[in-house]
């Protein structure tokens, strides 16, 4: 899921204060904490109050979209409303904001949130935690299931570094666990320190360089297809 944090109301209002009719769109996709119809309504009311305090009138409608990052879903859900509004405020993650701006290119969609990271919900520790950085070159098979990209502040492939003290990381004041000590403990537990000892060469950062696209297959065949030439 994409972990988000709502922006300060001042910042959101500043983006839309020149408009008199706004559409506030929640997202029912993977965005966490949930930003659905009720959150959209509350945000709209707060913006209305803010406008009133400045002697302005703000008309709004709050809706929610199953997934703003899916072009077909977003287009069919939002299209009926856009003619009547000057701007859209979206409560989705950045993916939804960009997609909405792409689909509806005659109206600006503004972000009400900061997208923080792709995260997991760890109820035992009461956190949303970044366990994967979507780096495109998964090492979890050789690290005992602990990600050294997301878990290590220095993204080390051959850790730990000298900044670890009794299994805690120098970044964050020795409160977060050192991913590489954790990797060591996991591999030792399964008698697989051979994986720890092995040198991992420099990574291929082309897999982690924006913008990234993956072609969605439209069809499959067992016939030989001509290969695309790389320039």
């Amino acid at each position: 899921m994409i972990i988000t944090q709502q922006k300060n109301i001042e910042e959101i209002y500043d983006m839309v204060k020149q408009y008199s009719k706004i559409l506030v769109a929640g997202c029912d996709g993977c965005c966490q904490p949930p930003r659905s119809i009720n959150e959209a309504k509350v945000l709209a009311q707060m913006l209305e109050l803010k406008a009133r305090s400045e002697g302005k009138e703000l008309k709004w409608k709050a809706i929610t979209v199953l997934r703003q990052c899916d072009d077909r879903i977003a287009a069919t859900t939002v299209r009926p409303f856009i003619e009547q509004y000057d701007a859209i405020v979206s409560l989705s993650c950045g993916l939804g904001i960009v997609m909405m701006n792409r689909i509806f290119d005659n109206i600006l969609t503004f972000p009400a949130q900061n997208s923080m990271f792709g995260g997991a919900e760890n109820n035992a520790e009461n956190t949303f935690a970044e366990y994967c950085e979507t780096c495109g070159e998964c090492l979890l098979g050789v690290t005992g299931g602990v990600c050294p990209m997301a878990g290590c502040a220095k993204n080390l492939s051959n850790g730990p570094c000298g900044g670890t003290v009794t299994g805690k990381c120098e970044v964050g004041g020795y409160t977060h666990e050192c991913a590489w000590v954790k990797i060591y403990e996991r591999l030792k537990k399964f008698n697989r320190l051979d994986l720890f000892t092995k040198y991992r060469p420099p990574r291929n950062y082309r897999n982690w360089s924006s913008p990234r696209f993956i072609e969605i297959n439209k069809s499959y065949t067992n016939e030989e297809e001509p290969k695309k030439e790389e320039k």
Binding site: A153, S157, C161, E170, P202
Partner: peptide
């Protein structure tokens, strides 16, 4: 030492290679 510990805390740390690499 990580840039977050230094006097330009908002810097983007690089770490393209690690020290072994």
């Amino acid at each position: 030492d990580h840039s977050a510990l230094g006097d330009n805390k908002n810097a983007r740390p690089v770490y393209d290679l690690d020290s072994t690499q």
